[in-house]
């Protein structure tokens, strides 16, 4: 009966006009497609600005061509080395710390029997994920404020003496890593937790009878079972290793120039080149390099994750 209806409907559709049907679908998609052309593809053509010396008065078409001068300038500059190093090193720190911390949290959660407690814990771990980096910057400021902050109160009590945090670059890789993990660990541990819940319990029943303890079961059975998901998440993060989290590096550091030597990343550099130096062409050129490298990274990591598990990966 159902099949008959479906067959009939196919005929009706053909008679009623396949063209009308396609027209309706394209009519619906038209506006969103137009949006993508304007907001996603037009800026891609705007990359021509990188090969020009952009002048606000002359506009894109009126500004003169300068070839690869902007690219040369950036690639030969000292800033390039610092900014690229910071972006990659900080992201590498983030990826490693987040993976380890989230995995630990997920495994601990997995061993808690009370579902209610697990849910309450998850809610508190996820809370920082919902707030903006503006709020995060306030929280960090409350801790690190040199005069009144909690960190210096503690250091003073211990007799070590306070630190002027916002002018000491050497502490910031650790501070930013803690902030990043604090903000992201809830979400990521929920993912790992869901994967752990999917592990077949019969797998370690035998091991338990043989007298294996929790740590052994976790290490030899649980982690290998969810390893592919852990690796895929890490690989996806590596795909974005050339992109800096602007809010984190700009707001949480209070955009303190004294910290640039470790906290200046590609995204903050592109922003300052555009908004503070007003060098539109140079900013475009750096953004273009970032986009190309980012694209290659995503494609490579996507290929890698497909090798691990054919069902995963973006494309």
């Amino acid at each position: 009966m159902k099949e008959a209806i479906i067959k009939k409907s196919g005929k009706i559709r053909r008679r009623g006009g396949k063209l009308a049907y396609q027209g309706e679908l394209w009519g619906m998609a038209a506006l969103p497609v137009l949006w993508f052309i304007i907001f996603s593809y037009l800026p891609m053509f705007g990359i021509t600005i990188a090969f020009k010396n952009y002048n606000y008065r002359k506009g894109i078409f009126g500004s003169e061509w300068v070839g690869l001068k902007n690219f040369e300038f950036f690639l030969k500059s000292n800033d390039m080395l610092i900014v690229v190093r910071n972006t990659i090193l900080m992201n590498a720190l983030f990826i490693a710390s987040l993976t380890i911390c989230a995995l630990l949290v997920a495994i601990f959660m997995y061993n808690i029997r009370s579902r209610k407690l697990v849910k309450a814990l998850q809610t508190s771990y996820i809370t920082p994920n919902f707030v903006s980096y503006v709020m995060v910057a306030y929280v960090v400021y409350a801790v690190l404020n040199p005069q009144y902050g909690i960190a210096n109160q503690l250091l003073n009590k211990l007799g070590i003496g306070g630190v002027d945090w916002y002018s000491q670059p050497k502490y910031w890789p650790i501070i930013l890593t803690i902030v990043h993990v604090w903000k992201a660990v809830g979400m990521r541990s929920v993912m790992y937790y869901a994967a752990l819940m999917g592990v077949d319990e019969t797998l370690f029943e035998a091991a338990e009878i043989d007298g294996a303890n929790k740590v052994q079961i976790t290490y030899h059975i649980l982690i290998p079972e969810i390893l592919s998901i852990i690796v895929i998440m890490a690989i996806m993060d590596i795909g974005g290793i050339f992109r800096g989290d602007f809010g984190l590096f700009y707001l949480v550091t209070q955009d303190s120039p004294l910290l640039y030597s470790v906290t200046d990343v590609v995204d903050t550099y592109v922003y300052r080149t555009l908004m503070e130096s007003n060098n539109v062409s140079l900013s475009t050129a750096i953004g273009f390099i970032q986009s190309v490298v980012g694209c290659i990274m995503v494609l490579v990591t996507n290929f890698a994750s497909k090798k691990i598990d054919g069902d995963l990966g973006l494309i």
């Binding site: 304007i38 907001f39 996603s40 037009l42 800026p43 891609m44 053509f45 705007g46 990359i47 600005i49 894109i60 995204d267 592109v270 922003y271 555009l274 539109v280 062409s281 900013s283 475009t284 750096i286 953004g287 273009f288 970032q290 986009s291 190309v292 694209c295 995503v298 494609l299 973006l314």
Partner: peptide, 13 residues
């Protein structure tokens, strides 16, 4: 998703 024009061209647009 893979590629974007970047900040400056978007800003000009």
């Amino acid at each position: 998703m893979l590629f974007s024009g970047g900040l400056a061209p978007t800003y000009i647009l």
